[in-house]
Lab assay of single mutants.
Amino acid sequence: YFQGQLNAMAHQIQEMFPQVPYHLVLQDLQLTRSVEITTDNILEGRI
């Protein structure tokens, strides 16, 4: 994955969860590489 793709995914998640800091979303995406998994992590309070 290149950074631009991760940034696009992070923006997509931020639209759904504007209360979660962008850098935390991006940090999780770098591990998961998945909008779905990061979204689940937010919903389950891991982020």
Rank of each mutant, 00 (worst) to 15 (best):
G45H: 06
L29M: 03
I13N: 00
Q3K: 11
P21G: 04
Q5I: 11
L43N: 08
E15N: 10
V20T: 06
Q19E: 13
Q30Y: 13
V25M: 04
V25W: 01
H11S: 13
S34L: 03
F17L: 02
L29Q: 00
D28H: 03
Q12A: 13
L29A: 01
M16V: 07
Q12H: 11
Q5P: 10
Q27S: 10
G45M: 06
H23I: 10
L29S: 01
L43G: 03
E36K: 13
Y22P: 06
L29E: 01
F2C: 09
G4F: 12
I13K: 00
F2T: 15
L26K: 04
G45C: 06
M16F: 07
P18K: 05
T38S: 03
I42K: 00
A10K: 02
N41D: 01
L24Y: 06
E36P: 06
M16G: 05
H23E: 12
E36F: 08
Q5H: 11
I37C: 07
T39A: 10
E15I: 13
L6V: 07
V35F: 09
Y22L: 13
T32W: 05
Y22E: 03
L6E: 04
T39M: 13
G45S: 05
R46I: 07
Q19F: 13
I37M: 12
N41V: 05
Q19H: 15
D40A: 15
A10N: 01
D28V: 04
P18Y: 03
F17R: 00
Q3C: 10
L6H: 03
P18H: 03
Q12I: 13
E36Q: 13
P18N: 04
G4N: 13
L24M: 08
Q3W: 08
Q3E: 14
L6P: 02
P21E: 08
Q12G: 07
N7V: 14
T39F: 07
Q12R: 12
L43V: 09
L29I: 07
R33C: 13
V35W: 09
Q12T: 09
Q30G: 06
H23C: 09
N41L: 02
T39D: 02
S34Q: 03
I13H: 00
F2M: 12
A10R: 03
A8D: 11
M9I: 09
Q3N: 11
H11A: 14
T38F: 02
Q14L: 14
Q30F: 12
H11V: 11
L26F: 09
E36D: 09
N41P: 02
V25C: 04
Q30N: 09
I42M: 04
I37Q: 11
A8H: 10
Y1A: 13
D40G: 13
M9D: 06
H11W: 12
L43T: 08
L29Y: 00
Q27G: 07
T32Q: 01
L31I: 14
V20W: 08
L6D: 04
V20C: 07
